[in-house]
Design a protein around this nucleic acid. Sequence first.
DNA 1: CGCCTAGTTGAGGTAAGTCAATTCACGTGG
DNA 2: CCACGTGAATTGACTTACCTCAACTAGGCG
Lengths: 248, 248
Amino acid sequence: MQMQTELSRALRAKLDHFMAFSDAEAGRLETLPVRMQTFEARRTLIHEGEHQRVAYVVIEGWGCRFKSLANGEHQVVGFPLPGDFLGLRSTLFHVSDLSCMSLSPLRVAVLEPDILWKLFETEPRVGMAFLWSMARDEAVIVEHLTSIGQRSSLAAMAHFFLETLDRLKMIGREGQNNSFACPVNQEQLADALGISNVHVNRILRELRERQLVTFQGSVVIIHDIEALSEIAGYEGSYLDGKAPGLPY
Amino acid sequence: MQMQTELSRALRAKLDHFMAFSDAEAGRLETLPVRMQTFEARRTLIHEGEHQRVAYVVIEGWGCRFKSLANGEHQVVGFPLPGDFLGLRSTLFHVSDLSCMSLSPLRVAVLEPDILWKLFETEPRVGMAFLWSMARDEAVIVEHLTSIGQRSSLAAMAHFFLETLDRLKMIGREGQNNSFACPVNQEQLADALGISNVHVNRILRELRERQLVTFQGSVVIIHDIEALSEIAGYEGSYLDGKAPGLPY
DNA sequence: CGCCTAGTTGAGGTAAGTCAATTCACGTGG
DNA sequence: CCACGTGAATTGACTTACCTCAACTAGGCG
């Protein structure tokens, strides 16, 4: 039971922003038969191109999804946080198009595909919530694409920090005064934003000197959200799917 | 009836690569109550930030999904082709995070959400096929992200041409000798690849001079697929979800 | 014929890359 | 407790891929 409540807590911290579950639905989530698994930091959970049978839900810790290129470069696609799915798409393809590693110690719930599909049938509203989660993931990737394609590296970095803070706030894992623990190193940040690690370092210095953000000792502190949002052109409504001023 | 077979033909041209439909399932697709709609070239079907109730399936023509930024820049996220869904995610969010315009005259089938959700319930395998389609869309976006983030603009351009040719081949709409009609202009190509239109022009010239690709008069001709794939680091298995050497 | 949009090319500037050296943080063993 | 090793962060010097601006050309069409 401890295990199931862990899964349900992680999922609902995220999905409650989309849908109010009934007690019955919540109970069904509680009793989903899953097993837990814990990885040390820097372990590869999912290997690009390899057979992928099960999906995961992150319970605790940060992950890193990335694509490897022939020339040894990497493109980081995103950083899964508690409540996020891993390899959900891959269970459809049977093969993963991305690798996924743990950045910190990572605790996950392992979901057998059968259980997942059965859940879709018996709990259509929960299925909807999962779909919503996939849709949000795509919205995040589209923002990411926009950052790399159109924003300056300063704006892209600012955007990343703001988005990550909001994602953490949604699941109640932010720190005090707009700060958060961030187990991402400059190399990974570089691969995420499509710039060099040297340049990441210089952008971080600029953000620090301009009193906007400090990122030191694996902790990000955002000093001036207003100014940073202005620079990034950040508007986080794509995270919760509620547009300002529209009834839902 | 003409209408339904149009929809079913467009969908199956794409989805047959993933799943063999039974006669019963095919019949159910045929009788889906949908209405058709046709847009002239350069019309905006979906407006970013606006209420979005219905989804579409492209029957004929090219679309262009893009995000607009405050500074007037655009990020093109992809070019929907026949068989592709438009605004499917938006029906969940109720609000679209992207705009979508027609590049050529565009014929679409309009899907009411209720019908869609009912289809998911009554035809779970068709629902799976739609999910697969969404998953493939995301795989394409991830490749796109990788192009912009890691590949040189030459390689990114090469990648775009190769991927588009393969997508068209899958739905039987390629031209002769690895060519295809392409209603995308250099400006839109620039916004897709995150480079300037001037640079697009120079890259196209280089591709032409190296006898790899010509893109003139809205027709793309790929002269040397091998060499181009080498340059792009292209490997199209993410499009059909079948990894080389793995049983499906 | 002239307008309008898209494409093409040149010249010069800049954001970001590469290479390489140095410093820092931290864990480990003597 | 200090010497050492290792990986990450930092900084400088130089290079380059791509951008901006601006002019010019080519084609489609009322």
